[in-house]
């Protein structure tokens, strides 16, 4: 396990040797090269954003403050700090870390939802995401309608997604006829299972999951794991953020521990989880623990 908190050099996950065959693409600032064995390359990525810390985020409050010569109270959040990472095709990467560590922001930036403040992300392959439970489900519409909307939002054509709806319903273990019932009649488990089924049905090259495996019972979890194993066997890449540490240990072949926006450690999932658990219990970082 390597301690990388103070060193933002490029981290290559996995044990394989880097490919020397390069793919070329034109970026905003010129040509970009990426080894053909990589699914994701993150280069010196930092993400900052401002949030309004006023309790009342209203126009009325802003006008009242302006009339008193005060500004709206803003805070700059440095969510991701100088992260550099290579993720080869066929990896299953787990990301652990406390709330506010930057895990979800990192996932959103890989998905293209949150563009970098500095640095660059190169993604080689089609992405499917499950970063927020529900995929924009409209509770008044049927499961079928919502699946079509979710698929269209993900960039599929209507024909492509319609041909998969029955398969999605079957994978999500929906009872007979429920696919055409309004989503508001679904249990929370059914809701989560459909969302997961939609994301894996898109045959993505790269699957990004943020706390998505909490949906469903033990049987569905087993089914989810099997489906993800199938994806990995097809050399597809999966990145999982989860607080369920057993999931990270069981499913992933590499793990990253993020702490306050940086990659604190990376390596074999069991060891990373063990160190992270020590941190949760004692509240000390690996460098401190080694001194104990």
């Amino acid at each position: 396990m390597a301690d990388k908190a103070k060193n933002p050099e490029l981290i290559r996950l996995g044990n394989s040797q880097p490919s020397t065959t390069m793919l070329s693409a034109k970026g905003y600032n010129g040509d970009v090269l990426i080894p053909d064995d990589l699914a994701i390359r993150i280069e010196d990525l930092s993400i900052t954003y401002k949030i309004n810390v006023d309790t009342k985020k209203t126009l009325k409050n802003a006008v009242m403050r302006a009339s008193k010569g005060e500004k709206v109270r803003m805070r700059t959040v440095e969510a991701v700090k100088r992260v550099s990472l290579d993720i080869p095709h066929g990896s299953v990467v787990g990301i652990v870390g406390a709330n506010g560590a930057g895990k979800s922001t990192l996932m959103r930036s890989i998905a293209g939802i949150m563009p970098p403040t500095t640095g660059r992300i190169v993604v080689n392959g089609k992405i499917s995401t499950l970063l927020a439970l529900g995929v924009g489900f409209n509770p008044a519409l049927s499961g079928r309608d919502n699946i079509i909307l979710g698929g269209l939002a993900a960039g599929l054509t209507r024909d492509e997604i319609e041909s998969k709806t029955d398969e999605i319903a079957a994978f999500a273990d929906l009872p007979d006829g429920f696919i055409d019932m309004p989503v508001r009649t679904y249990s929370s488990g059914m809701y989560g299972r459909v969302a997961f089924a939609v994301s894996v049905s898109m045959t993505p090259d790269i699957l990004l999951l943020d706390e998505a495996l909490s949906a469903g019972d033990a049987a569905f979890k087993e089914k989810s794991f099997l489906r993800m194993r199938e994806l990995v066997e097809e050399a597809r890449t999966i990145v999982i953020v989860s607080h369920a540490l057993a999931t990270i240990s069981d499913l992933c072949d590499t793990a990253i521990w993020m702490h306050k926006g940086s990659i604190l450690a990376h390596g074999e999932p069991g060891k990373i989880v063990e160190e992270y658990l020590k941190f949760l219990e004692v509240g000390m970082l690996p460098s401190n623990l080694e001194d104990m």
Binding site: D36, S109, P115, P116, G119, R120, V123, N124, G125
Partner: peptide, 10 residues
């Protein structure tokens, strides 16, 4: 392959 590049906005 599909390659997507995400860089800071100008």
């Amino acid at each position: 392959p599909l390659i997507q590049i995400f860089e800071p906005h100008k």
